[in-house]
Every structure is written in structure tokens, then in C-alpha cells.
Nucleic acid binder design. Structure first.
Length: 946
RNA sequence: GCCGGAGUGGCGGAAUGGCAGACGCGCACGACUCAAAAUCGUGUCUCGCAAGGGGUGAGGGUUCGAGUCCCUCCUCCGGCACCA
């Protein structure tokens, strides 16, 4: 066999493509649809790793496939070139960050050319180039002028190692910095913030129609964390004015027994001097301040707090006076930083109320509808207070249950509460009436009130019962004689705990069982029907939310977990913020004609402890006159978060060279929105959210054509080391793609990564050194196809060719490159075994080309193809060739496969059945009886039921 | 705790409700070879000599037929989490 010399072939075709400028994309091509395929541009770390290959080369497979399918494909490339590593290298090794970055980009470009990707280098963007960041600054000012950017004093996440501010998204759950791993501190600083929260609703609502994996959408929804509720105002005593709280449950307003404000809440500092327990409150807030985020997480969830002794609130509906506490379980940053506490229906409030001995008032009854005894239409509806008595005999751990023969009910002792009687007294009365037992002691309440709806057959009415459920213990078996009419209605029986199941007639059973198991009264935090709620009693939660909010003079609002995006960074290697701080005029935008504000060269990149960027050392650069008043002023010395740079790079690709505008509107119209965006899961709540926001803001200003930037998104998986761990230098399990390319060739590396697993679901795949050898063997066989050319393609190979044209296209379209390659393997093996005609072999080169582009070009040329295979159209398959004239049909008898028959592909059920019954192996199972039922799936299967 | 996603051979993984395990790796045997590597071929879920039985995290259900649909549960992964 002729040797498959990958290095020769790959070098040859890479040169051919480059000299033909084969993949530079015009903005429009007559008769072709545009398709914009994007991957996350890399940070120029200096070295291409396997993850880059997985990101770029597999996206390239799709780009090539789209091109073959007749699309005009934009597949651009660039570098996200600002950021800390360059600066850290500068500090550590005394290199200039610019030099370091540009050298890295040079070596990475060389590595990337070896991938055989169809990158359009003519549109390359580099975020640290003034030609690019001029427009980053311009767009920043566009948002500034639109009122979406402000300088604000905020509590920020301060990274004491990198000495810079971090966005919330850059802080891990354990309170450490994502990048440096340092424990993040909270600091008050003046920061540039972008009002992403103004777009919170649209960032959630516009997710719906996007062709994104549900998991990404959900993560974003979670992250934005919208919750719908109400803002309610409580009037305060003395001259303190009022206090606004946020609640998702205004329907529980009658259950409020106290209020809580966060330790940082304004009211605490305002009221402090006059408080009777001033010292205690002061001590508490000092302690709370000292707790970092991490302490709060690791620290016990035990509720702490302290009364604000000297100020009270008035309940807006009942006029009751309510105490106010400060406690750190209420967070300053969420809602209004103050809550109304409803200990009867909120777990946290319940824990606090228990710790502080505060009253609990139930206002919601869960609504239980008995499906087995539903309300009967036309019957009277009678509402009653009622009680269920769970009586336990401690002697043998059995429970007293009743059987109602007429209704087929199985219940505990149950009955109505009469007049002024309380529910415990009513229960004791009913126990004696129904069973005769007299020596019974009340233990505790289990459940209640519940609102239960059922048809009371014994009374012939529709009953709405508000039930209390109590636990009793039997003291002795003492009994009175039970009236005869009661005996007729029901009989009683003692049953063990295990016989109490949800199968009993009470709809409350799950609640009762839970309370028996936990030993605690059943706690209801869900919605239901209002009780003890004045004029609103009897309403459903849903209705009450509106009516009570209205009655209390509040308003229905949404709040979000999403915070505004802090974009200033106190570091050197970033895009300078184009603002001049004037002592008279405040922050003033640098005039558009003075952009870009060029990042000055400095000598010392060390970050400063005072929270200012190293740019503050470039005194000459800093000193300017105010564009507004002409007086002395200073440039802003903070730089922009690199996520700002990457929030719009996909727009620049549409028109990368434009010097008049960030991108020409016509070109944006031609390309936006991006048709397919491939990237890493780590960007789900960062880059993807920022970019969506940025694009929406620009859309609202009429600068981009679509409200959403990315139509389809997939998060790719991770390639692990051969040991199944994440590749890392310290583990010594890093696979160097350059080494693999040298040994096996780029086509093999690409195809191996495509074959390793489905690209449309983000799995983690270990690198298998043997696995890549298998793929290499496949390409060696493919390389030998010209040697197997025969005059006429054998029929079964021809069929396989057309099946492959169809299947590879279908699989590639849904990013199942693994099964597409499996099909190509089957096809190639058949060709090597039985030969193929030249014309058909050319088709094979075309469908192979997205995966192994260099080899495919070589084959194409050897097989007499003209021009480049990369520019061929995807072949049409011949549907008539897909199926054979006769097919093998599986025959099932009673659901088990018992044999096969060969039949024409359009044989009728009767034909196939006849053939099947003629076979001994099937006859054996069918016997003499006539089949009860026969199902025929044409061309596939016959199922006989006997 | 809440919200998503996923559980299939020794491994990566295939399967419009229609013969579970395609394709690849690994392994075994064979061919070629003085020999080895490479290559090619055959076999490879499991119990059973066989006929046949069992099998897709566990248990139930729907169906002529379930990896696939429904219910309950378990485990793993991801996101959020004292979020009112």
C-alpha cells in the first residue's frame, strides 16, 4: 500500500488554500445564504492546547459542512488579548505586556494554521490593538451617553492578590477569586458600573425562543434570579418615617408578627442613637460586618439578631404594633434589605421566632381536594370547623381507626367542632361518642388548619372542612357503652403504625404521617386559602396577593439576584476608560474625535494597594484639560474589564477594518445574528450574559439589527488527560496537540476529536492514545481509496455511498460528528474490500472533507477532481438506492424475536405473515391456534400475538 | 433545599416506541513472519453442552412491543442557595 504521508499532504494543501485565499469571505454572494459560525476567540496565552483544537477544529467541521451545503460562511478568528496574564508575566519576568502578547499571538497563529481550519484571517480582530479598542471606548461612551453607565460608590469584591475589583461572576461560591484563588474581601470603592439590571427582564424573557440548550437558559434564569412579589410599606413609630419591605408572599400579610432589617440597613444607623439597647445593637452590627461571605456560608444557619428597642412598625391592615429586629439572615443587597416576618409560613422566620420567643400566627390553610369523594354538583356546600383525632395506644404502638361500611371509608376519629368548643375538646368528645374510650390524653397538635373539600356522603352535603388534627394517647382501655346508632355507622379497630398509609380516606394523610415521623407540627410554606385574615379570609393566595397588596397600599414588583456589572479594573493591561474626571464637571466623556485614548507605555506595572491602577503613575498622560470647562482635570486611570472587550467582538468581525464606525450597518445586517456559537460552559453566566446585554443595549439604540446576538449556542465538553483527570501541568497528563499532529497529522487529530463523543452534549472525554490510532487507521484506509478504483461500483457499495451521503449530512447538521465518522468508517472499509467507481469515489472525498480536509483534497485531486473539494457542493443522494429490493423482517411472537423472513420491501402484511407461519422455527411458537393479533411494521418487523 | 441534565459492555459511545450494544478502543484466536511490530481476518453482554433464559441505576405502570413514554426512588454531574 502506498504510504499515507500526512505531513507532506497537509503542508501542500495548507499552502494551496493560503495562496488561493480560499476562505476569505465576501459579505454577500449572489444566490447564497450567509451563515455566521463563531467560536470564542482565544486568549493569547502562547500555546495552543487540545481544548483549543476541540473548540476550533470541530467548529470548523461544521463551517466546512455549511460551506459544502451552499452557504456563504463567515468563520472568523481573533484574540481576546487584554488581561491579567500579560501583566503578571510582565511583573514576574520584566517583559513588556504588549511584546509578550504579540509574540504569543505570532506563535499561536502558526500553530493554528496547522489545524486545516477555514479561518478568514483577513477579518482578524485583536482587542488590545488601538484600532479595536478605539471602538470599545466609543461603544462604552455610547452606553455612557445612554445613561447605562455610572460611577458609583459600591461595596465591591476586592482581590488582595491581583489587587483589583472582581465582578460577582468572577467570585466562586466559597468566596475565593476565580482567577487568583485569593480570599475575596469586601471594600467600598468608586467604580464604573453598567446597568445590566435594567435589562434583567428582557434577558430572561428573550431566552425562550433561542435555540440554546435548556441547561444554559436555566443557568441564566437562575443567575438573574427574578422573583415576583410586592413592595409593602410599614409606618414607623416616632419620627422614623416608614420602612419598605419586599415579599413574594403578600398573601401572608396578616401573619406578620415582626419585621427584620439587614444589619447594614439605613434604619439601623438612623435609629441607633436613640435605642434603649444601643450597645447591644452596635455590637451586633460590628460582628456582622466582620463576617465575610465565606463565614456566612460556612457558619451555622442558626439565627442571630437583636431587637431595635425603641422603634416599632404599624401593621398596614390591622394597625397592630410590630417589633423590629436586625439580623444577618436578611441580606442588604437583595430586595429592600428588609422583610416582614411570617413565622407560621416561612422556615427562616420560624427558626428566628423560635429562638426569640416571638408569636406565630397561621394565615394560610393548604387546600386539599379529595378526588375520591369530590364535590357533587347541585348539592349544598357546608363549611365547618372540624377535627381529626389520632389516638395512639402506647402499650402496643397501635392507632385507633374507623371503618365506615356504608361509604367504604377508612378514617381516624373525625367530627365537627360545635359552637364555642375548642378542637381538642371536640376531639375528646368524638372519641368517646364513637368508640367509648374515656381515658384519653391530648399529646400535641399534628396538622392544621387545612382546608379540605369533599363530599360528605353520610350527610349528603358538599363539605368544606377546616381541620385541626391532634395526637392523643390512650391511658387505659376504660370504655363507656357506645350508642347503637353510632355502632351502625362505623366500627373501630387498632392498627399498627405500618398500616397507616396514604391509602386511608383522609386527604391530609401525607401531612399526618410526616408529623408523626418528625415529631413536629406540620409546617406549611406553600400557597392555599387564607384564614385569620380579616376581610380577606377565604381568598386563595393568588387572589389575595393582588387584593392585599392593593389594600396595604403596596405595589407588585420583581426583584433580581443579578447585580449591576462593575467594569472598572485597577490594572494596566486593559482598555483605558475614556473618561476625564473634572473637579468641576465630574466625569466627562472624552470627545469622539480624540479616541482612542491610547494606553501609555509605563515602566512599572505593579498594582497598587491604594486601589488605583498603575496608570496613575503615568502623570503626564493623566493631566489633561476638561473637554467641558477647559480647566485642569485628570484622565480616568482604571481600565475596562476584559469582558467588555469580548462583549462586542462578534460585531467587529462583520467589518473588522472599518475606521469610521465600529461596524457598518449593512455588513451587520448581512451577518448578524450569529447562526452558531460554540464555546465553553464557564461562560454561561458571564460572557454570554454580558454579550447579550451589550447587544440589546446597542439594539435599543438602533446600532445593531437583532435583539439577540447568538441564534444557536452549544457548550462543548472537555478533553481530559489519559488518566481521566483534567489536563494540568502539575498532573503531568497534558497532551500536546503539536506532538500529536507531528505523529498522526492534523486530519487524524481533528477526526479523532470529532469521533470521541457527541459534540452537541458537553461530556468530558479522556484522551485515549489507542483511540487516535484507530482513527489514523481509518484515514490510512481512506488514503488508499484510489488504489481500489474499479470500473463500476458494486451495488452494495453504491448503496452505502448514498446512505452515507444522507447520514453524514444529517449527523453533521446536529453536531453528531461521532456517528458521522462511524458511517464513513463503514463506508471506507467496504470500499477497500470491494472497490468503487471513480465518480462515486469523488463523492466520498467530498463527504469526508469536513473531517479530514487535507486528505480529502488529495483524494479529490488523485481522482481527477477539478479545483478544490472544499468548494464543491454536497452531493445529492439517490433515494431509490437507499433501500434494497428485499429486506430482512424480524418476526416476534408474543414480543420475543423468534425468527426472520426475507421479503420484498413492499410486501403486504398477509405475505409476510404467510411466509413467517411457513417457517418451522416460528410455527413452533405460534402453534395451531389462530394469531390473536398481528402487527406489521413495513420493511422492519412482524409481531404475532397468540 | 430549589432548578436543570445524565445513568447502556472492561472503556468512549450507538439505537424515528420495532432484532440493545453500530463504530472505535481493549481483549482472545488465526493468517503473514525465523521472530516481533505493523497489517489483515474471525470472535468478544451474560447464564447454558444445547434448546432456551436473563440483561440498558432500582421498583412499578402503559403497550403486541420500552434504553426510549408515565409514576416512585437511588446515584452522579452542573447551576442557584438564609434570595424573603
Amino acid at each position: 500500500m502506498k504510504q499515507y504521508n500526512h505531513s507532506e499532504i497537509e503542508k501542500k494543501w495548507q499552502q494551496e488554500w493560503a495562496s488561493a485565499r480560499a476562505f476569505e469571505t465576501p459579505d454577500t454572494v449572489a444566490g447564497k445564504e450567509n451563515s455566521y459560525i463563531l467560536f470564542e476567540f482565544p486568549y493569547p496565552s502562547g500555546n495552543l492546547h487540545v481544548g483549543h483544537w476541540y473548540a476550533f477544529a470541530l467548529t470548523d467541521i461544521y463551517a466546512r459542512f455549511e460551506r459544502l451545503r451552499g452557504k456563504n460562511v463567515l468563520f472568523p478568528v481573533g484574540f481576546d488579548a487584554f488581561g491579567l496574564p500579560a501583566e503578571n508575566a510582565a511583573i514576574k519576568h520584566g517583559l513588556n505586556p504588549r511584546t509578550w502578547t504579540y509574540q504569543n499571538m505570532d506563535s499561536m497563529r502558526a500553530q493554528m494554521r496547522a489545524m486545516g481550519c477555514t479561518f478568514d484571517w483577513s477579518r482578524e480582530v485583536v482587542t488590545c490593538a488601538p484600532e479595536y479598542y478605539k471602538w470599545t471606548q466609543s461603544l462604552f461612551l455610547t452606553l455612557f451617553n445612554a445613561g447605562l453607565v455610572q460611577k458609583k460608590t459600591t461595596t465591591v469584591n476586592w482581590d488582595p492578590v491581583d489587587k483589583t475589583v472582581l465582578a460577582n461572576e468572577q467570585v466562586l461560591a466559597d468566596g475565593t477569586a476565580e482567577r487568583s484563588g485569593a480570599l475575596v474581601e469586601q471594600k467600598e470603592m468608586d467604580q464604573w458600573t453598567v446597568s445590566i439590571t435594567k435589562y434583567a427582564d428582557r434577558l430572561i424573557d428573550d431566552l425562550e425562543p433561542l435555540d440554546w440548550p435548556e441547561a444554559i437558559k436555566d443557568s441564566q434564569r437562575n443567575w438573574i434570579g427574578r422573583s415576583e412579589g410586592a413592595k409593602l410599606t410599614f409606618t414607623l413609630s416616632g419620627s422614623y418615617g416608614s420602612l419598605q419591605v419586599f415579599t413574594t408572599r403578600p398573601d401572608t400579610l396578616y401573619g406578620v408578627t415582626y419585621l427584620v432589617v439587614a444589619p447594614e440597613h439605613e434604619l439601623v444607623s438612623v435609629a441607633l442613637p436613640a435605642l434603649a439597647n444601643k450597645d447591644a445593637v452596635e455590637a451586633y452590627i460590628t460582628a456582622a460586618k466582620r463576617k465575610t461571605e465565606r463565614d456566612r456560608l460556612i457558619g451555622e444557619k442558626e439565627k442571630t439578631g437583636v431587637l431595635l428597642d425603641g422603634v416599632t412598625a404599624t401593621h398596614p391592615l390591622t394597625g397592630e404594633s410590630l417589633p423590629i429586629y436586625t439580623a444577618d439572615y436578611v441580606l442588604k443587597g437583595y430586595g429592600t434589605g428588609a422583610i416582614m416576618a411570617v413565622p407560621a409560613h416561612d422556615e427562616r422566620d420560624a427558626a428566628f421566632a423560635e429562638a426569640f420567643g416571638l408569636p406565630v400566627k397561621k394565615v394560610i390553610a393548604p387546600r386539599l381536594v379529595d378526588d375520591r369523594n369530590p364535590h357533587v354538583e347541585g348539592k349544598e356546600v357546608v363549611t365547618r370547623n372540624a377535627v381529626i383525632a389520632v389516638v395512639r395506644n402506647p402499650e402496643n404502638d397501635t392507632y385507633l381507626t374507623l371503618h365506615w361500611p356504608a361509604q367504604q371509608w377508612h378514617t381516624f376519629v373525625i367530627g365537627g367542632v360545635e359552637g364555642e368548643e375548642d378542637s381538642v375538646a371536640a376531639a375528646l368528645r368524638e372519641i368517646t361518642e364513637e368508640t367509648g374510650y374515656t381515658d384519653v390524653r391530648f399529646v400535641r397538635k399534628l396538622v392544621g388548619p387545612t382546608r379540605s373539600e369533599f363530599f360528605a356522603a353520610h350527610k349528603d352535603v358538599n363539605r368544606i372542612g377546616y381541620f385541626d388534627i391532634h395526637l392523643f394517647e390512650l391511658g387505659s382501655l376504660e370504655q363507656k357503652v357506645v350508642a347503637e346508632e353510632e355502632v351502625k355507622k362505623q366500627t373501630y379497630e387498632w392498627v399498627p403504625r405500618s398500616a397507616l398509609t396514604t391509602a386511608m380516606t383522609h386527604t391530609e394523610m401525607p401531612f399526618i404521617l410526616e408529623s408523626l415521623d418528625t415529631g413536629k407540627e406540620f409546617f406549611w410554606s406553600g400557597e392555599g386559602i387564607l384564614v385569620n385574615s380579616g376581610e380577606h379570609t377565604g381568598l386563595s393566595s393568588a387572589e389575595a396577593k393582588q387584593r392585599i397588596t392593593e389594600a396595604a397600599g403596596g405595589e407588585l414588583v420583581s426583584t433580581y439576584k443579578l447585580r449591576d456589572w462593575i467594569v472598572s479594573r485597577q490594572r494596566y493591561w486593559g482598555c483605558p476608560i475614556p473618561i476625564i474626571n473634572c473637579p468641576h464637571c465630574g466625569p466627562v466623556a472624552v470627545p469622539e474625535d480624540q479616541l482612542p485614548v491610547v494606553l501609555p507605555e509605563i515602566d512599572d506595572y505593579m498594582p497598587r494597594d491604594d486601589g488605583r491602577s498603575p496608570l496613575a503613575k503615568a502623570t503626564e498622560w493623566m493631566q489633561v484639560s476638561c473637554p467641558s470647562c477647559g480647566g485642569n482635570a485628570e484622565r480616568e486611570t482604571d481600565t475596562l474589564d476584559t469582558f467588555v472587550d469580548s462583549s462586542w467582538y462578534y460585531l467587529r468581525y462583520a467589518d473588522a477594518k472599518n475606521e469610521q464606525v465600529f461596524a457598518d450597518r449593512e455588513k451587520l445586517n448581512a451577518w448578524m445574528p450569529v447562526n452558531f456559537y460554540s464555546g465553553g460552559a464557564e461562560h454561561t453566566t458571564m460572557h454570554l450574559l454580558y454579550a447579550r446585554f451589550f447587544n440589546k443595549a446597542l439594539f435599543d439604540l438602533g446600532l445593531v439589527p437583532s435583539a439577540e446576538p447568538f441564534t444557536k449556542r452549544l457548550n462543548r465538553g472537555l478533553i481530559l488527560g489519559t488518566d481521566g483527570n483534567k489536563m494540568s501541568k502539575s498532573k503531568g497528563n497534558v497532551i500536546d496537540p503539536d506532538t500529536e499532529v507531528a505523529r498522526f497529522g492534523a486530519d487524524t487529530v481533528r477526526s479523532y476529536l470529532a469521533f470521541i463523543g457527541p459534540y452537541n452534549e458537553p461530556g468530558n472525554y479522556p484522551w485515549d492514545p489507542n483511540g487516535i490510532v484507530g482513527v489514523r487507521r481509518f484515514l490510512e484506509r481512506a488514503a488508499a481509496i484510489p488504489e481500489h478504483v474499479v470500473v463500476e461500483t458494486p451495488a452494495h457499495v453504491r448503496q452505502l455511498v448514498h446512505q452515507s451521503i444522507k447520514k453524514v449530512a444529517e449527523d453533521a447538521a446536529r453536531f453528531k460528528f461521532n456517528t458521522a465518522i462511524a458511517q464513513l468508517m463503514v463506508l471506507t472499509s467496504a470500499i477497500c474490500k470491494d472497490g468503487i467507481g471513480k465518480d462515486d469515489a469523488q463523492l466520498v472525498a467530498v463527504i469526508l472533507s469536513p473531517f479530514a480536509p487535507h486528505l480529502a483534497e488529495e483524494l479529490w485531486q488523485q481522482l481527477g477532481g477539478i479545483s478544490l473539494v472544499a468548494h464543491e457542493p454536497w452531493p445529492q443522494y439517490d433515494a431509490s438506492l437507499l433501500e434494497q429490493a428485499t429486506v430482512i423482517i424480524a418476526v416476534q411472537v408474543n414480543g420475543k424475536v423468534r425468527g426472520q423472513v426475507e421479503a420484498s420491501k413492499d410486501a403486504t402484511e398477509a405475505d409476510v405473515l404467510h411466509a413467517a407461519l411457513g417457517q418451522e422455527s416460528i410455527q413452533k411458537w405460534v402453534g395451531d391456534t389462530d394469531p390473536k393479533k398481528v402487527i406489521y411494521v413495513p420493511g422492519k418487523l412482524l409481531s404475532i400475538v397468540v
